[in-house]
Design a protein around this nucleic acid. Structure first.
Length: 225
DNA sequence: CACCAGGCAAGTA
DNA sequence: TACTTGCATGGT
């Protein structure tokens, strides 16, 4: 089975079981980007509490959040955990938009993917997954988001070796799927859905996972279609 | 009680 | 370069 067929098979299985997901859970590009930083190594439930705090206070905007002190910001986002670190990371991000882009987030997001990604990665606190989540879900540009669930799912089903790195997994998807932000959006969301239910760190057997017995996995050879 | 969650950067050798 | 550790709340 070729890699593109394998991935489409995987997508179909997940889609019929969990879809449509309608991601990202957030109303504006700014909210999505704040959420992307807050959810680093953190349960989404805790992120929602933090975002609710900001919403309740009427502070969920670039201008309002940029005006807060580190201490005030940390206090609002407290439920999301790592609040001191994340307050600094949010401020680093705000500095990029306010400094280099004069506070115009839409204009910033309108850049070509390559330069957008490069600028996001230059911010201390924004790594590959956070940057790609912002590009796909806030800027609506086609890039594939890889997370721990993606790595664990493919690794446990022996589609990749455990040593595969972020960019290798990203290329596996992007080299074998049509470049379509709608597809990338839904695919990543579906992987998180199945991950939360069947591919937890503490449950290596993945009992009942709809990916089990994916047709032809044993003959996967890693080549592009 | 222990372990985990939609990472990332800094420290160590 | 290749590991390891700190960051921290809230749910199971």
């Amino acid at each position: 089975m070729y890699t593109d067929e394998l991935l489409h098979d995987l997508y179909e299985r997940l889609s019929s079981r969990f879809g449509p997901c309608n991601w990202w859970p957030g109303d504006t590009p700014f909210e999505i980007m704040v959420g992307a930083i807050l959810t680093q190594n953190t349960n989404w439930n805790n992120v929602e509490r933090a975002i609710d705090n900001l919403k309740q206070a009427g502070l969920l905007s670039l201008e309002a959040m940029s005006a807060l002190s580190s201490q005030e910001l940390a206090d609002y986002i407290r439920p999301a955990g790592y609040y001191n670190i994340k307050a600094g990371r949010l401020q680093n991000f705000f500095s990029l938009i306010n400094g280099r882009w004069d506070g115009d987030l839409d204009f910033f997001l309108g850049q070509p993917v390559a330069t957008l990604r490069e600028e996001l990665l230059s911010v201390k606190g924004i790594g590959p997954e956070t940057a790609d989540s912002m590009i796909l879900y806030a800027a609506d540009k086609p890039i594939f988001v890889v997370d721990t669930y993606t790595h664990r799912l493919l690794s446990r089903h022996e589609i990749i070796e455990d040593c595969f790195e972020y960019h290798m997994i990203q290329e596996l998807f992007m080299d074998n799927l049509e470049e379509n932000s709608r597809l990338f959006n839904e695919f990543h969301a579906l992987i998180v859905m199945v991950g939360k239910e069947f591919c937890k760190k503490s449950k290596p057997n993945c009992t009942g996972c709809p990916v089990s017995g994916l047709n032809g996995v044993e003959s996967y050879d890693g080549r592009k279609n």
